[in-house]
Write a protein that binds this DNA or RNA. Structure first.
Lengths: 290, 290
DNA sequence: CTTGATGTGTTAAAAATATTTCATAATTGT
DNA sequence: ACAATTATGAAATATTTTTAACACATCAAG
């Protein structure tokens, strides 16, 4: 199947000497705008290269493919593989473990999730979300669900240092309506909702939206119904070889947002960190030396 | 012509809201291995995405193309243009953002952390930790600190489903000595302690160790002093371009351990999941349909 | 629970694309 | 220069792919 060694374009290069005039003319045309030209219809390629239709068919057979469609399929495979970054192909992450070990399988999946998630993010929407989160004129509410409340709290802990007026609301708790009383127009809600989307979370989002609040939604690739109310919707890939979904990609995005928000608010954040450190010193919560 | 925005993938992304369920499922599949999947035959794409053939035809029309071939032609054009640009290197994760954008800088750092962390893990120690965690004859205590208690709780929520006898202890709380009363020889403590190592955590670990418990430590590359008491010590890289450290790598490792533990205990886990689902159904906590 | 509207998949017809056949042109060796 | 060989393209055929038509299923409103 012409899988001699490397890429198909290399293979064509090597074959160039064994091709006839018309075929070579065609081959060079294919290489000219590789691989796009080879992915179109045979007829178009022939016309483009200035050769006849059967010439194309004959050349791909000479290259070792059964027919033009098979040649195209090979090109697509190559393209697919190429899009994966070199780091994603790194198939053993824990070098000491076999490639089938859960450490490697799981990591592989997570890296792929990260790649896909980041690839689909709209940076301007992301920046907008960070600006909203860092805006101290707006009260910041952070809403998590049954599992995601851990992520919500992680965000809360950091935002609390970065800025004042941050509240952590747990949608599974029946106390959340009380928090909503304080929400006013222009306030910001960061809502976590991944599959097994929660009714409470949706209700909370609806009420917040009615009150004129801005919603930033952290969800999965299938997107929680909350997304219809959201100002910014960040969807994460979460599928891994496990009975549960992965929060790692969401964690990454979250930390990136924290980092961005902290930069936006740096003067204030710095002062607050110092104050916090002072308090830690006084309570002797931490060890003095590493 | 649908050349409204920039790339076709952007356009699809923007359109996502106007698409129906099956169409969205298809669109996501297209984006997954973009652009390769869209360059193959319609039939293959439909099968790949798990939707019917006409759905594909309808979606591309919704996107503004006259038919599937026109859509493909547009993809090829885009591919042709992309290859011409010399910097086709995939060193940017969020392609739409400049390489200096925090999204790319942060992700780059995290991936590097993952690579280094996984590279240094001893698989047999890792497996040993998973076995201990999955062993239902030992009570499992999960201990987190000021920030890490969120990770601890994440682990707790999942382990709680996988097996009975799991307790979440927060070292910053003054109630933890009470939990220790129940700890007996052979029990397992998963302890989270990253820099700004906490005195309370160390004390707790010491007492647990005295009582003959096994300690699994999740720490950073400099390793918490708890490591001297630990049966297994898993150290993570945590440095990122931020004022704080990253928990993403730790989250990855955690989820991998959950996945491994769940496999070890599968029969029991499965039964427990089913029971849980039943209860969810009865409480109507979740939405029935996506 | 029924109705109407919308979405979705199965099937069949239409269109396009790819392959084969064959006649002609170009090339090579004598 | 002439035959033998090989290469090439036009046209016909076969195949695949795409589109259109229809029927079933699903969901929201009354």
């Amino acid at each position: 199947m012409a899988e001699a060694a490397q890429t198909i374009s290399d293979h064509i290069h090597k074959m160039l000497d064994d091709l006839t005039r018309a075929e070579r003319q065609l081959a060079l045309s294919v290489l000219e705008t590789y691989p796009a030209s080879g992915l179109g219809p045979l007829t178009a390629l022939a016309k483009d290269a200035g050769v006849s239709v059967p010439t194309v068919a004959r050349m791909v057979q000479k290259l070792g493919y059964k027919g033009y469609p098979e040649f195209q399929a090979a090109l697509r495979e190559e393209l697919k593989a190429k899009v994966k970054t070199p780091i994603a192909k790194h198939d053993t992450w824990a070098e000491a473990a076999p490639s089938g070990h859960i450490l490697n399988r799981f990591t592989e999946a997570v890296i792929e999730n990260i790649r896909l998630t980041l690839g689909q993010i709209d940076p301007s929407a992301f920046d907008h979300a960070c600006n909203l989160m860092a805006d101290v004129d707006r009260h910041l509410f952070i809403v998590g669900g049954r599992i995601t409340h851990t992520l919500a709290e992680y965000l809360f802990l950091h935002m609390q240092v970065i800025r004042p007026d941050v509240t952590h609301v747990q949608s599974t708790s029946n106390t959340w309506p009380h928090y909503l009383l304080n929400a006013k127009e222009g306030d910001v809600f960061v809502v976590f909702d991944v599959r097994r989307y929660e009714n409470n979370t949706l209700k909370l989002a609806e009420l917040a939206h009615e009150r004129g609040a801005q919603i930033i939604l952290m969800t999965d690739q299938w997107r929680s119904p909350v997304h219809q109310l959201a100002t910014v919707c960040l969807s994460n890939r979460i599928v891994v070889p496990s009975a549960w979904d992965s929060a790692t990609t969401t964690m990454l995005l979250l930390e990136t947002m924290i980092s961005a928000a902290q930069t936006l608010n740096w003067t204030q954040t710095k002062a607050r960190i110092e104050e916090l450190e002072d308090m830690f010193d006084q309570t002797k919560l931490f060890r003095k030396f590493t």
